[in-house]
Amino acid sequence: MRILNICAYTWSIGGPPKIIYDHTKVAIARGHQVDILSPMSPGDEIYPVPEGARVIPCLRNPPVSNYFKEFSVELYRYLKQHIHEYDIIHCHGIWHFGSVAPFLIDRTVPKVITIHGLLDRWTYRVGYWKKQLMSFVLQKRLVERADLVQINNTDEEQDLLRYLGHRHPNTVIIPNGIPLQDFAVLPPKGSFRQQYGIPADKKMVLFMSRLNRKKGLDLLLPAFHRYTRDYTDAVLVLAGPDDGYQAATNAYIADHGLQDRIIRVGMITGDTKKAALADANIFVLPSYSEGFSMAVLETMAAGLPALLSDRVGFGEVIRQRKAACLVELNTDSVYAGLKELLHNDAYREQVRQNALNLVREQYDIEVVAGRLLDEYDKILRR
């Protein structure tokens, strides 16, 4: 198969590039061709590209792209010229130009859409009127025309039903996956702490995601501040790029004198990220909305116990398997979760082991990516 993914394939965009990367490695190993069409702005850093795959960067065109996300004349021209060279066009996300252009250009090449959590109630409220207008004009009809809509979980299934007002005839629930072998061996303990001056006698609480309010930072910061007033045994590490909430985070840290208790390290990748997972005592993500959190999967695969909301994309499975400390979306609950995980060694080990077992059984990328390739094949045989 010749597969074209359309996504802003950059470090700053969050989880979708990592998902595409992992799926692409499996697809290429099984003999398929994969290209990635990526709208870019000057200064954007392209995410790593698997050997054998190709990224086609296309320049965004402001000011239009400021209002119609990812608008790119180059992207449109590429599709116009090359769309019939592919067997499958896979659009990642909605509300952006790359999820619209293939439908405007062609009706014959099969098209797949992955929602990536963008119909969640919390996310849908952001830019509500613009999304309502776009839905009325185009987006809803184009989603209905998709040959397949991939969703990650039953929550997304309900989000799609609510959005369309009826069931889409071609949907499949396929979760995100992770290459388990990447986390089988972690760097030696202590290397991350040494790099960032984190004392060995302090428990390390790791937040590893974009600095965005939807990630629950407005809950985590006051909860951790309260923890520091009661206990002196922990530091919070914030690892992630700014996505609209860095100024508020910096102001909170300064206003509450937390400079020695909260350490900001920016975005971390590769061995540095693995070293952080090896050195942390717990991971935290009290998120309001996630399509299917890759950070949580990586954390579980690394054997690090986690404190999470149930909005991370597979909360119901986590609850059933007792694979994390699940908290409600309020400061008191996050504070109570911090205390429970940091002070109860037996509970922390139980959560850790349950999470490892869950990831090994259900989220190995070889299995997950194989299911998606099978769905592509079913489309082509219709």
Rank of each mutant, 00 (worst) to 15 (best):
H90D: 09
P50V: 06
N281S: 14
Y288N: 07
Q150C: 07
E328N: 13
D218R: 09
L79M: 09
G291E: 15
E156A: 12
G197E: 05
E156L: 09
V359W: 11
Y227A: 01
I56K: 04
G52L: 05
T299H: 12
G337R: 10
L238P: 04
V100I: 13
K378W: 11
G31I: 05
A346V: 05
G177P: 09
T228A: 12
H225F: 05
D279G: 13
Q181Y: 14
G216H: 08
M134Y: 11
F283L: 10
L277I: 10
P17Q: 06
G93C: 01
H96M: 07
V205T: 12
G31D: 03
R311W: 04
D374K: 15
A29H: 00
Y128Q: 04
N250L: 11
G177T: 03
R167W: 02
F314M: 15
T299R: 14
K378A: 02
A302F: 15
D201C: 10
L217K: 07
M208E: 09
G240K: 13
I178E: 09
L358D: 00
W129G: 03
S289C: 10
V334I: 01
G93D: 07
R226Y: 12
L220I: 09
G197F: 02
D147G: 09
E375D: 07
L326K: 01
N61L: 15
Y9I: 14
V172G: 02
L217S: 05
R213M: 07
K322P: 02
R210F: 10
E361V: 00
D106W: 04
L118V: 05
R60Y: 07
P17F: 03
K215R: 14
K111W: 02
H166P: 05
I253Q: 07
G266N: 11
V26T: 10
T108K: 09
Y9V: 04
A346K: 07
I20N: 07
K322A: 14
A355N: 14
R210N: 12
P102W: 04
P199C: 04
G337E: 06
N170F: 05
I174M: 00
C91E: 04
A223T: 01
W11N: 04
V26M: 04
G244N: 08
H82G: 00
D271N: 08
R381C: 02
G270Q: 14
P62Y: 01
A295C: 13
S287G: 15
I263R: 14
F224I: 02
D332P: 00
R60N: 14
P286M: 05
D364T: 09
D120L: 05
T123L: 13
R311T: 06
Y288W: 13
A276W: 14
H225R: 15
T299G: 15
R321S: 08
I268K: 15
C58K: 03
D22P: 01
K203S: 09
R60T: 14
S333I: 04
I174L: 02
